[in-house]
Amino acid sequence: MDFNFTEEQDMVRDGLSRMVREQYGPEERRQLIASDAGWSKAIWGQLAELGILGMSFSEEDGGFGGGAIDSMVIMEEFGKGLVVEPFVPTVVCAGGFLKHAGTAAQKEEHIGGIVSGERVFAFAYAEPRGRYDLANIETTAKKDGGDYVLNGHKAVVIGAPWASHLVVTARTGGERTDAQGISVFVVDKSADGIVTRDYATVDGRRASEVYFENVRVPADALIGEEGNALPLIERVTDEAIAAQCAEACGAMKVAHAMTLDYAKQRKQFGVPIASFQVLQHRMVDMYTEYECSVSMTYLATLRLDADERTRKEAVSAAKVRVAQAAHHVGQEAIQIHGGNGMTDEYAIGHYFKRLTIFDSEFGNIDHHMKRHIALAS
């Protein structure tokens, strides 16, 4: 199997890596996440100008003909800088729904705005009682004439404070946990009846609790077939998991490098702590965890276009392995840094927070372990 990247992908990686190093250093990021906005529209605009937001869309849809591999390359570089701009909610999630099931009119209306950076999306799928089950939906969308009327509550909607539009999962039929009766809608966040409560997350991003109170959306806001959207939702979330695995790999690589550099400088008993064999072993273990995570991420990304069962098995295996590695690398980095690692001034603490939170997004280790076992049995 050929794991070499194309010349174009290498160019994207080099350009994005340079941009992240120059504009997303630890101090710049610290100031950014502490600002009222919590993100940079200027950086989002630069990503659009560089073609980053359009890399994974086909040329027919107004993009540059890439796919999941391109998103993987991009997300790994974002992970190295702990970039908070909403690439996954906007490009991977909203873009995924539009690519796989959007009508020609929906693609024309939204994808151009995503590629240009003018439209920002958030994926409103999680609910307070959902427990990682994508079919556990209480938000309803009831047909009323030529419209749908949405009511419900979506929890921890990442990037929602910055979004112009939401992609919302809602129940158009069936009972709370039924696989059938689930639909997906594109909703303008400024629509009447939408109420949000915005807050900062532990890892420096922004999220919202989103409440829908008789929110009326037109019938053409429906993506895909009414009542049969669960397989589509599972496919898009699997693509998001693969992208975030790449992000975690980038963060782990930097966390390991920071820890190694610190150990070479920090002295005890008159010598650098990097000379202590027990710490050498621990740092080698960190690097091994990172390399295993890269391999699992590559495998999951390459299997996103396989049959449903193969895709799910690969993605769940990757999520379990990468999340375990992220916990290990983050905790070891903090341990070796000592008390300094927990201070806001040291960048390693920010990497620890992001690597820790990674486990809880789109299903944690236990959830994906159970899914993988069920598929393999």
Rank of each mutant, 00 (worst) to 15 (best):
G204R: 13
K353E: 14
Y351L: 04
K41D: 15
Q335A: 08
F212Y: 09
Q335Y: 10
T259M: 01
Y298F: 14
T343D: 14
A155L: 12
H153P: 06
A37T: 12
G65D: 10
E60D: 14
F362L: 02
D36I: 09
V215N: 02
A314G: 03
V168Y: 07
H100T: 11
S293V: 06
R30A: 15
L232T: 07
Q331F: 03
A191K: 07
D238W: 04
V73P: 08
H367N: 09
A170M: 06
Q180A: 15
L304V: 09
C245E: 00
T297L: 01
V322R: 08
S183E: 13
V156D: 13
Q9T: 04
V320I: 06
M11E: 13
T6I: 05
E49W: 00
V187N: 04
A37N: 11
A257K: 10
E77S: 04
A317F: 03
L47E: 05
R197V: 07
P128R: 07
G181H: 09
S164H: 14
F212Q: 01
Y287M: 03
V202S: 06
E138W: 04
Q46G: 07
S58M: 08
E345D: 11
M11W: 05
F352W: 14
S183V: 11
V329D: 00
A42M: 07
V115Y: 10
A325K: 00
E138N: 11
Y211I: 10
A374D: 13
E28W: 01
H256R: 02
M1T: 12
H327D: 12
F121D: 11
A257H: 02
V149D: 03
T237D: 11
Y298W: 12
V120I: 15
E27G: 01
T90V: 01
S35K: 09
Y199T: 01
A42E: 13
A274L: 12
G193Y: 08
H165S: 14
V320W: 06
T201V: 09
A141G: 06
I43D: 04
P26V: 03
L166I: 08
A255H: 06
V210D: 10
N136F: 14
D36A: 11
R309H: 04
D10H: 11
G173F: 09
F78R: 01
L260I: 06
I365C: 02
S190K: 14
S71D: 14
S190F: 00
G25R: 07
A243S: 13
D144Q: 15
D344P: 02
W39C: 13
A326T: 00
D2N: 15
P26E: 03
D14Q: 11
G330Y: 03
F358L: 04
L222N: 15
V315K: 03
M258W: 05
P231E: 09
E109L: 13
L355E: 03
Q277I: 03
K370N: 14
A200S: 15
I158P: 04
H337Y: 15
K99S: 09
E76S: 03
V210I: 10
A163T: 05
E213N: 15
